[in-house]
């Protein structure tokens, strides 16, 4: 079956699946980002405590997504919220870790200079620490986004749509075309979103922070 035939037959379905998939990704990464960002900022105030906490959080990250969605499914049932909660939680860690590291790695000299100029702690955070941690924060978001695109495939496991639907149905019916028809758009989606984030990063990064310092 050629690409054209495939699109004629499944085009509408594919568009719907991509839309659902994107929704999962955006909502989950968005929610994950808010939680991760706040948590990272708070953790960066207490680095000694964070040195213990962050590795522990990292361990949770290794629990397979399949298991996690399965468990949530038991408690919450077959609702989109099940998928979103699971994906959000997975999206948190890379953003949290990168944001935290980015903030902690801001040169002590800058912090001292900022304090010496009379900035308050909050001013130091949003005028100096966050802007200088931006590239690290962006790479966390990029990582989470790309992961979430692939993890969102699992939504289909509990019958909640997205590109995973093609893949699962293909596996069940032994139809390679359907598997590829789900996998290729998912890969393209991941790359496109990653590229989009790069563009945004370039746009918002001041010239002084670009290129190796």
């Amino acid at each position: 079956m050629g690409v054209v035939d495939f699109l004629n037959r499944y085009g509408d379905h594919l568009m719907r699946a991509i839309f659902v998939h994107l929704q999962y990704v955006f909502i989950s990464v968005g929610a994950g980002f808010i939680i991760a960002f706040i948590a990272a900022v708070l953790l960066s105030r207490v680095p000694r405590f964070s040195k213990v906490v962050i590795p522990v959080l990292g361990i949770f990250q290794t629990v397979p997504g399949l298991v996690f969605i399965g468990v949530l499914f038991i408690y919450l049932g077959m609702k989109p919220i099940t998928v979103i909660i699971a994906l959000s939680i997975y999206a948190i860690f890379p953003i949290l870790k990168n944001t935290y590291t980015g903030i902690i790695n801001v040169d002590d000299g800058l912090i001292e200079a900022a304090r010496g100029c009379g900035m308050s702690n909050f001013q130091i955070l949003y005028k100096i620490e966050i802007p200088n941690a931006m590239s690290s924060i962006f790479s966390g978001v990029r990582m989470s986004t790309i992961y979430t695109v692939s993890w969102a495939v699992l939504a289909a496991m509990i019958g909640l749509g997205g590109l995973g639907e093609f893949i699962y149905r293909g596996i069940e019916t032994n139809n390679n075309v359907l598997i590829i028809g789900g996998a290729v758009p998912a890969a393209i989606l991941a790359m496109t979103l990653g590229y989009g984030l790069d563009l945004i990063e370039k746009k918002v990064t001041p010239r002084g922070l670009k290129g190796g310092r």
């Binding site: 900022a114 010496g116 100029c117 308050s120 005028k127 001041p206 922070l209």
Partner: peptide, 22 residues
């Protein structure tokens, strides 16, 4: 403390110019 520091100039060895600002 912050008010005090705004009224006193301060220069450090590492220079400490903010790279994100012009």
């Amino acid at each position: 403390g912050d008010q005090l520091r705004r009224g006193i100039g301060y220069v450090i060895q590492q220079i400490g110019l903010f790279p994100n600002l012009t």
